[in-house]
C-alpha cells in the first residue's frame, strides 16, 4: 500500500545548499521545464476548449472559420435532448456499467484470492491461463460468441439486441480484475490470515472479513476500471445492441448521432461534451482513488 502512494513533494526536497552557479542553472532548468509544461498543458486543453466553443455555436458558425461563438447558443444543450433519446442511452449505459461492475467485483475477488493465497495443484497453470485470456484480443473469440448468443434464441431467450451478452460474462470473472486483485492480495501479510485461521475461520470467512477489509483500495480500483471500461465500451455494444436502438448505450448512440438524424456539428459537439462529462465529474469527485488506482496497475503491488 505504501509503495502505491505518490510521494508528491519528494522531488522538491533538497537537503544541502548547492553552490550559486548550480542553483542558477537549476533555476533556469526549472523555468524551461515549467514553460514546456504550460505549453503542453495548453495543447492538452485546446481540444476541450474548441469542443466547448463549438457546442455553443449556431450551425452556420460551426461550418465557418470563426472560433468564438457569436451569439452564444446555450439552447444547443437542451436541443440535443430533443434530437436524440440521450436519457434512454444514459440509462442503458448505467445499467450495463453498474450491473457489470458489481458482477466483476463479486465474481473476481474469490478467484483472485484462490489464486493468490490458497495452495493447490494447477494454481500456476490457472494463473497462466488467466494471463493469456487477459492478453488475447477479444476479436479472437467474438464470432463464435455471437453465434452462441444468437443460437439461444429458439429456446426463447432473445439475447442479441439486449444488454445481457454484455453483462453476463462479467459475472463470471474478469481476467483483468482477477489479475489486479491477485497482485494486491499477494501483499497482504500472511500473519493476518494465519491469525484468522488460528481463530478457526474458514477460507471463505477469512476472505469476507480480513481480506476484503485490507483490499479496499484494490477493489475500489477494480470497480473504477470496470466502470470506465464498460462506460466506454463500443465494440461489444456495436455487435450486440447495434440493431436495437432502444437498447443503445451512449457510445453507440453518439457514434450514430450524426447519421441518425443528420444532426449538425454544433449539436454533435454538445452531445460529445455531455457524454464526456460523467467520467470527468467522477474524476473530480474521486481524484485520489483514480490516481492511486492507475498507479496500482503499474507499480508492484
Amino acid at each position: 500500500m505504501s509503495t502505491a502512494s505518490v510521494p508528491v513533494g519528494a522531488a522538491a526536497l533538497v537537503r544541502r545548499r548547492p553552490p550559486p552557479a548550480v542553483r542558477r542553472q537549476r533555476f533556469l532548468v526549472a523555468v524551461a521545464n515549467h514553460s514546456l509544461l504550460i505549453a503542453a498543458a495548453i495543447m492538452f486543453l485546446a481540444p476541450f476548449a474548441f469542443i466547448v466553443l463549438t457546442a455553443l455555436m449556431t450551425n452556420d458558425q460551426a461550418l465557418s472559420s470563426h472560433l468564438w461563438p457569436h451569439p452564444f447558443r446555450w439552447r444547443n444543450f437542451s436541443d440535443v435532448f430533443h434530437q436524440a433519446p440521450l436519457l434512454r442511452w444514459t440509462l442503458n449505459t448505467m445499467i450495463y456499467s453498474v450491473v457489470a461492475t458489481i458482477g466483476v467485483v463479486v465474481s473476481s475477488v474469490p478467484v483472485a484470492y484462490a489464486l493468490a493465497r490458497l495452495r493447490w495443484r494447477g494454481r500456476n497453470l490457472a494463473f497462466m491461463v488467466v494471463l493469456i485470456a487477459l492478453m488475447l484480443p477479444p476479436q479472437v473469440t467474438v464470432v463464435p460468441l455471437y453465434v452462441m448468443w444468437s443460437k439461444l434464441h429458439p429456446f426463447g431467450f432473445h439475447f442479441i439486441g439486449t444488454l445481457w451478452p454484455l453483462i453476463i460474462p462479467n459475472w463470471l470473472g474478469d481476467a483483468f480484475s482477477i489479475f489486479l486483485l491477485r497482485q494486491f492480495f499477494l501483499t497482504i501479510p500472511e500473519e493476518y490470515l494465519d491469525a484468522a485461521r488460528v481463530d478457526g475461520c474458514g477460507e471463505l470467512r477469512i476472505l469476507t472479513t480480513v481480506v476484503l477489509r485490507m483490499a479496499k483500495p484494490a477493489i475500489a480500483a477494480v470497480a473504477l476500471f470496470s466502470f470506465l471500461y464498460t462506460f466506454n465500451d463500443f465494440f461489444l455494444p456495436l455487435l450486440y445492441v447495434g440493431e436495437n436502438p432502444s437498447h443503445w448505450v451512449l457510445s453507440i448512440g453518439l457514434s450514430e448521432f450524426r447519421s441518425l438524424r443528420q444532426v449538425q456539428w454544433n449539436l454533435t459537439m454538445a452531445a460529445t461534451l455531455l457524454v464526456m462529462a460523467p467520467a470527468i465529474v467522477l474524476f473530480f469527485l474521486a481524484q485520489r482513488a483514480f490516481i492511486e488506482g492507475v498507479t496500482l496497475t503499474g507499480v508492484k503491488g
Binding site: 445499467i95 453498474v98 450491473v99 467485483v105 479496499k216 470497480a223 473504477l224
Partner: peptide
C-alpha cells in the same frame, strides 16, 4: 477510499433495481 466503497454499495442497490 471509504467514500468510493460506500457509493459502490449504493450503486449495487440501484443496480439490482435496474436489473429488474
Amino acid at each position: 477510499m471509504r467514500r468510493v466503497t460506500g457509493s459502490l454499495l449504493a450503486a449495487a442497490a440501484v443496480g439490482a433495481a435496474l436489473t429488474a
